[in-house]
């Protein structure tokens, strides 16, 4: 036997191996999803149900505008909270855990490029967040639907005498305009997009910090800076106010390096009845895609040669 005997194997390996395989990425993503599901994360839906039903029952003495608004605020608030927590904690929990438990060894010693592992994990988390948001939305929309019909019936009941068809339709229009409407879906999408960026941030952090707690804390700090940065600029450096070059420089660096998560906050406006044009939704989606790409890339740069 000579060294040439290896050639068939060598060639076979090269031809069999794909530089990027969606099926491998999907295998990792689905595994991540399964793992989280079996960690019983979906129990949170119970908490969510309690919250929105509570919001529904507790505020019956208010005007219907307040009632519908509180229901939407609580729902969107809980959705934002859960989606962000899942994104950050999920990512921080799973990747450092894989490293700590050395589960990563058995994955990376299969013909799996490291970026596929990272992308797979990220997609798994995003999939989980998406599924949770869809489930929460269904609950939220169902409660809202029943509530607005309930409110309509109550309001008609409280009218003196026999209300005319015109009165009823005007009332209905008024109530439903603040109830279930397509615009709410844009709000859910915006919540998802922000959570996706948060997950990508946690991905970057988890590639250089192997401790879960460290990842969570650093990611949360970045998450907060991401929200406050644009405001901090206005806050500390109001327009027209000349400040020290150094402060401006620092503020600039922060704006450059950190994502502006404030951009995704359109839910407040949506609840108060404004609508987000589709072009803006596309912009937000594009921006999210951009962040996912850059952060995946950076985490790969950090992770590619990491000594495990």
């Amino acid at each position: 036997m000579t060294v040439e005997n290896n050639e068939p194997i060598y060639n076979e390996l090269n031809s069999k191996f794909k530089l990027f395989s969606p099926s491998r990425v999907m295998a990792i993503a689905m595994n991540t999803f399964t793992q989280l599901v079996r960690m019983k994360v979906f129990y949170f839906l119970l908490i969510f149900s309690v919250l929105i039903i509570g919001a529904n029952v507790l505020f019956l003495n208010f005007t219907f505008e307040q009632e519908l608004k509180i229901l939407q605020d609580v729902s969107f608030g809980a959705m934002t909270l859960f989606a962000s927590i899942f994104s950050i904690v999920g990512t921080a929990l799973l990747i450092p855990k894989d490293i700590e438990d050395r589960t990563l060894y058995s994955i990376l010693t299969k013909p799996v490029p490291r970026f596929e592992y990272l992308i797979g994990k990220l997609l798994g988390i995003l999939f989980l967040v998406a599924v949770s948001l869809v489930l929460m939305s269904i609950l939220f929309f169902a409660v809202l639907f029943f509530r607005q019909h309930g409110i309509l019936a109550e309001e008609i009941n409280q009218m003196r005498g026999q209300p005319t068809a015109e009165q009823i339709s005007s009332l209905k229009e008024n109530i439903f305009a603040q109830g279930l409407r397509l615009e709410l879906i844009n709000g859910v999408v915006a919540v998802f997009l922000k959570a996706a960026v948060a997950a990508a941030i946690a991905l970057v952090v988890s590639t250089f910090a192997s401790s879960t707690l460290f990842t969570i804390i650093v990611s949360l700090v970045i998450y907060f800076i991401g929200h406050a940065q644009s405001m901090a600029l206005d806050y500390y450096f109001p327009e027209g106010d000349m400040h020290g070059a150094f402060q401006r420089f620092i503020a600039g660096i922060v704006a450059i390096i950190f994502p502006n998560l404030q951009i995704f906050n359109v839910v407040d406006g949506i609840v108060s009845g404004q609508s987000v044009p589709m072009s803006l939704m596309f912009r937000l989606t594009g921006l999210t895609g951009f962040y996912l790409f850059i952060y995946s890339f950076v985490s790969w740069v950090l992770f590619a040669k990491k000594e495990l």
Binding site: I256, N260, Q274, V276, L280, F290, I294, F297
Partner: peptide, 25 residues
Amino acid sequence: ILVVFGFLKIPFESQTEQKLKDKGF
């Protein structure tokens, strides 16, 4: 990488912010 792409995203972000401002968000 973050700095280079940060420079690229800033105009897009501030444009988007402006649009949001115009739409009352």
